[in-house]
Amino acid sequence: MMILVIAPFFTSFILRTVAWRQILADEGPVATTLNTLHLLPGGRITETWMAVVAGLTYNFLPFMVLPIYASLERADHRIIEAGGDLYANGFTTFRTVTLPMSMPGVLAGTLLTFIPAAGDYVNAELLGSDNTKMVGNVIESQFFRVLGGFPTAAALSFTLMAIILALVFVYVRKFGTEELL
């Protein structure tokens, strides 16, 4: 299963996103199935926010899986078994023992996913439309295509960095363990 998680890394990030265009295309398997079940309100997935979010989720999934896996792997199984010995059912054991023990991994995984995803523009460029442009797309177009856009692109980058930094600071302050801050 580890190999399944790591296998996508052997292909380039952009190639995988282009492949997702085919998977989510109007005549593709996902869109036709959902259309047959009448579950798709707009009738298509590509060029909607759903495609962008799906692409982001897919592309950053390994960065979420591996830290959580590492923290769960390291967890002492005897402590989890002790939860059962103390008459907790499976869900209670998970909520009060397993989940808190894996919190460092969850924190690392969410940060590793959120920070690059907020600045990502490949997914929005390849899977989205003009209505789903993200900051990364604006920075890219200001930098490369708009004449005289350099200062605006730089200001956008700095603002994005400040916003992410502030959010991450609040998040780590709220959920982090004492060794992080």
Binding site: W49, V52, L56, M64, T110, F114, A117, A118, T132
Partner: peptide, 10 residues
Amino acid sequence: RSLLFAGLAT
């Protein structure tokens, strides 16, 4: 939109 998409994806 960036923050929303990134949050949803996360």
